[in-house]
Design a protein around this nucleic acid. Structure first.
Length: 507
RNA sequence: GGUCGGGUGGCCGAGUGGCUAGGCAGAGGUCUGCAAAACCUCGUACGGCGGUUCGAAUCCGCUCCCGACCUCCA
């Protein structure tokens, strides 16, 4: 495969040339949501980031198996003391729902939102509850290998032994083993059953109140915090696979423990490239549905609130594609601060980009076939698009190049740049690449077109109105001409006059 | 308290030693009946203090501020 894709590997803390385990194939696992409430926009950012990564890998020609789980067994809340309760059970109890009813509802809404954001479905989307057997098997394997112990029906991972034998624990998150073993934070109470504070549960015996429970060789209970991802990634991608992604906040303990479990079960490092997306901030703080203990408010906004404008944070509604474009304007490993000004700017930038694409796609080649300096420059910019993406999926830089091409396209259309200096081949490559970057790689779509789709009447009426205005203008009847323009503007329709005629755009 | 990351022009956001990032906003101009759109030009930004270097936003030290993680979180 002809490319030079480099990926920043959290494990090595540097960019590495991407070489898949099996030529031409990529196995990618991304930690999905816990479906005990609606996703917030921060969750969406991670999935959009990995959607672009998924799309680009496919664009490069890889056959990608993309696995993203649905966590429908809640993670424990608080410490694993006697009051421990599963988040999903708790929410279900509060809402008077059967747990699976709650799970189903939020799973559907999750899919709906990601659909609106135009993310592609993963190849496999396994649920934790659907893989209890596999998880029990993995617990058994870890026990068999001597990296876990049983206490009162629960099973705990023996972290000190794992560290002693393999020394990889803490490598991913950059934690020092000593720090982990001598935890200083006050609110982290040691849990009686554990032999060591750094041990963690992989199977938990359920108490009477617990709604979600399954029989196992050790107790009627439920799987531990991090086990599902280990079990399901192994099942669908193998003991070793190429890419594992997730949010930065999962690095520790979730991913660290995943490695421990996989290694403990199989004896090898499971993942070649660990990728972590950074957090979406709201008002300079991490977006999170967990309420602030002091204020009782959570710093988050749901996609629906943002798209509908029904919120107290932003001045207006922002469309899903504007939000997606906004996300692409920063690198996935950087934090991104959501603000009204930034969204406003993104909205205008997004429209400019899409309009330019329309202009470009509507152009036919009228040159003489010769390649000149301009053609060479265009080819260079096109190549640069791929160089930026190959550099750890640098979407903001690729977008900057795309905007350079926006100017070129608009200038070519207006005749400010000579089409005669561009060969037909280059011109068509420009059209094709531009289109494919927008739609196939960045996953953007033209919302204005989508709105008017299937409505030939609108198009016909608009043409009629434009013709009438043109007539008025020809007669220097500026009153009529301006009245038409102003009235349309009231309806959010903007007319754009140019030498070739008048076009219109909604919004 | 421990660990890690970051502070870039009005806003967002790239950029790891010399070469215009980009978007939005702003100023001027071209075009236009007027506008809009489009195109052209413009801002001499890199938290502070030192140091290394011919040269630093980029490396080193100190310092201030912010954020994340430390067993719920994408």
């Amino acid at each position: 495969m002809e490319h030079n894709l480099k990926i920043y590997n959290s494990l090595s803390r540097q960019k590495e040339t991407f070489e898949p385990l099996h030529e031409g194939h990529v196995g990618m696992y991304v930690c999905g949501p816990t479906v005990y409430s609606d996703v917030h926009l921060g969750n969406c950012r991670t999935f959009v980031s990995f959607d672009v990564i998924y799309r680009y890998l496919m664009y490069l020609g890889y056959k990608v198996r993309y696995v993203r789980n649905i966590t429908d067994v809640g993670h424990l809340e608080g410490d694993t003391d006697s009051d421990a309760e599963d988040k999903i059970s708790k929410k279900a109890r509060l809402e008077q729902l059967e747990p699976m009813e709650l799970v189903q509802r939020h799973t559907r809404s999750f899919h709906h939102i990601l659909g609106i954001l135009n993310t592609l479905s993963p190849s496999i989307e396994p649920t934790a509850t659907g893989h209890i057997v596999e998880q029990i098997q993995m617990v058994q394997e870890i026990l068999d290998n001597g990296y876990a112990y049983i206490k009162n029906g629960s099973v705990y991972f023996n972290t000190p032994k794992f560290i002693q034998d393999h020394g990889v624990y803490g490598k991913l998150s950059g934690k020092r083993v000593d720090d982990l073993l001598s935890e200083t934070r006050d609110d982290l109470k040691n849990q009686d059953e554990k032999n060591d504070p750094s041990d963690f549960a992989i199977w938990i015996k359920a108490d009477e109140r617990h709604l979600m429970r399954w029989p196992s060789p050790w107790s009627v209970g439920f799987p531990g915090w991090h086990l599902e991802c280990s079990a399901m990634s192994t099942k669908y991608l193998g003991k070793q696979f190429d890419i594992h992604g997730g949010g930065m906040d999962l690095q520790f303990p979730h991913h660290e423990n995943e490695i421990a479990q996989n290694y403990g079960a199989c004896g090898c490092m499971p993942v070649r490239y660990w990728m972590h997306g950074n957090m979406l901030l709201l008002n300079g703080r991490k977006m999170s549905k967990t309420p602030d203990p002091e204020t009782g408010k959570s710093n988050s906004i749901t996609p629906v609130e943002l798209f509908s404008g029904e919120n107290e944070i932003f001045s207006k509604a922002y469309s899903p594609m504007v939000v997606r474009f906004f996300m692409l304007q920063s690198h996935y490993r950087s934090t991104l601060d959501l603000t009204d000004d930034a969204l406003l700017a993104a909205e205008k930038g997004f429209r400019r980009l899409m309009e330019a694409n329309k202009v470009l796609q509507g152009m036919a080649y009228t040159g003489k076939g010769q390649e000149g300096p301009l053609g060479e420059e265009l080819k260079k910019l096109i190549a640069q698009l791929f160089e930026e993406m190959n550099d750890d999926f640098n979407t903001p830089k690729a977008l900057a190049v795309l905007f350079d091409l926006v100017t070129k396209a608009n200038s070519l259309k207006d005749g400010r740049l000579p089409i005669d200096e561009v060969s037909a081949e280059t011109f068509n490559l420009l059209k094709k690449t531009f289109r494919e970057f927008l739609y196939d790689i960045f996953g953007l779509k033209d919302e204005m077109e989508a709105g008017a789709e299937g409505n030939g009447i609108t198009e016909g009426l608009m043409q009629l109105i434009i013709d009438i205005r043109q007539q008025a203008r020809a007669n220097k009847d500026w009153g009529t001409s301006d009245k038409i323009r102003d009235a349309l503007k009231e309806l959010d329709i903007v007319l754009k006059d140019s030498k070739e005629g008048t076009s219109w755009v909604k919004g």
